[in-house]
Design a binder for these strands. Structure first.
Lengths: 181, 181, 181, 181
DNA sequence: AATGAATGAGGATTCATTCAT
DNA sequence: CATGAATGAATCCTCATTCAT
């Protein structure tokens, strides 16, 4: 009506609105109506562009996972030495957990879905594989896996703990896990 | 009517049914009706015993957090030397992630609630504090925190990864993080 | 609210409203909303009293079939001789097809459902068995079946034909089918 | 695009798909989308070729009624003596009720529409007139009407009854109704 | 001539909660 | 004390139809 007739950004706008809403109210709180209102899109658009709400959520999280992977690549891809990589990992943890609450929450919501639904588990598994591959450019395979898990745990604890680990503690943990045996 | 007058186990049965349901369908999927049906309790009981569904959920998760803390105490409390403690931590990670899917899922659901709602965050913080205190019986404060985060990350990765870390890798990671500097 | 708290006639009112609506707009045209409005009952009552709309429709038609069977019994049950029975059958056909359009339509709707759904077919089969049993009080089994089919066909043609068979023609057809060989 | 410019069979394909769908899901279950999908035709075609869904349904049933009339003509038209006609009628009843369930269902759906909507009633009336005319080639007018109704009733009972009349019973009924007074 | 995108109305159903009993 | 009946709001989804292209 206003935008001519077709609005190619429509789909994208809906997905962004969905993620924002999930961050605010949780997967449990999203609904076609709320997403449509936030995206300023008529309700009927929801099921025109997506098979149903499950489809919509999955596509939204798929896009989000891509975004996080990109973040990993951006930070770890540039490191040229193991020391630089260690520093990049420390950056990553603090960026993730100090950045907008939105990211922390979305990751949690994604993990919760993954714990119950296979397609989401596959989404997470792909992300973990990619992350590990990046770490393996600087560390041996076993160390990469251990470090990957450490990143996960430190990020989460920084998000939930009332006295979150500081940068020095993070740096120390990274150093220990990546220390030569 | 039949059981005398009141059934003291009624409340408990409702809470267990709620957790089972959350494990199966997620927080988003629970409802008074479903919980009542599963607990074999009349629908009216729900709002008689609990203020509302939010109250019910919070009490259910409170009980669950207590249960997990008990698991930590049971495993870590018995260790008498740092080496025993290291082994206990390794056990803990593998028990948590190999045990029934139910536990993995409930922890995730709890974290997701904590990411958004203060009372749940406090619940998690208490748990983390307790866990750290237990670890501090064997390791210095900084190491305890790092180790705690590692436990978290390894457990999660064991749950979601398609090629989960094996016991040897877990043991190695624990050893590295707890190694003398 | 107004009626005290429980209204035992509620279910019955809904079923009657459903049948009225089916007669007016067809099975294709009924909806929870329309039935609720006609029965002057809140929308939520629909799925409180019935599992779903399928359940509601089936129960409505079950009640209706009982009503039609009662009509058959009332007319045929009183006949004491074959001649009286022939006259009763003729009455029946003309009462059915001259009476309120509602009945003709409801029977059609029921048959249409029966053509596609087993439970409705069973409903019709029961009705036919009962009808045949009544006719067998006056005629041999084969004749009863033939007469039963004739009743069906004449009623339908009286309902749909632009020049419907008159009473004399009906009487003649009944006489022929029930004539001694 | 591929087929030159216009596909003359397109309309026909849509109508056939509509009838198939009605047979499967009932008039209540048809929709533009489902018909378009089944006919492998773009959604926009629906309202391009037909005024609306009512128009589409009416044209579909019109074509179907023509098809049934042709069946009557094929069977009754060939009979040269009253006896042959009786046999043809018996054939007709058993062919109609033993043939694909689709036909039984479509006839019922058509009658149901006819019970409520004038245009469909006229469609049925034309069919009945034609059928009667064919029967009048062999029997007097009154007999033709009675026989026509009998055909209707026997066909329906054969379709819905759990112990449907056999061929001998059909033959007997036809003989009785067409017997000289 | 033909169609994919778009949408508001309405579909069935589920829900947490209230309240008379 | 305990509960079944009741309900209005909100859920997802399907629909016939319009219209710019």
């Amino acid at each position: 009506m206003a935008t001519g007739h077709t609005d190619p950004r429509r789909r994208e706008r809906i997905l962004t609105a969905a993620l924002d809403l999930i961050a605010e109210e949780g997967v449990a709180g999203v609904s076609h109506r709320k997403i449509a209102a936030r995206a300023k899109v008529p309700l009927g658009s929801m099921t025109y562009h997506f098979t149903g709400i499950d489809d919509l959520l999955f596509q939204a999280f798929t896009g989000y996972a891509d975004h996080v992977v990109a973040l990993f690549e951006q930070h770890l891809g540039g490191a040229t030495t193991p020391d630089r990589a260690r520093e990049a990992v420390t950056d990553l943890i603090h960026i993730l957990s100090e950045g907008p609450r939105r990211d922390l929450i979305l990751v949690q919501e994604l993990y919760t879905l993954a714990a119950r639904h296979e397609p989401y588990r596959e989404l997470c598994a792909r992300w973990m594989r990619r992350s590990r591959t990046l770490l393996e450019q600087h560390f041996d395979a076993a160390t990469a896996r251990q470090l990957d898990a450490l990143i996960e745990g430190l990020t989460l604890h920084r998000a939930l703990d009332d006295a979150p680990p500081d940068r020095e503690l993070t740096r120390g943990a990274v150093a220990r896990v990546t220390a030569a045996p």
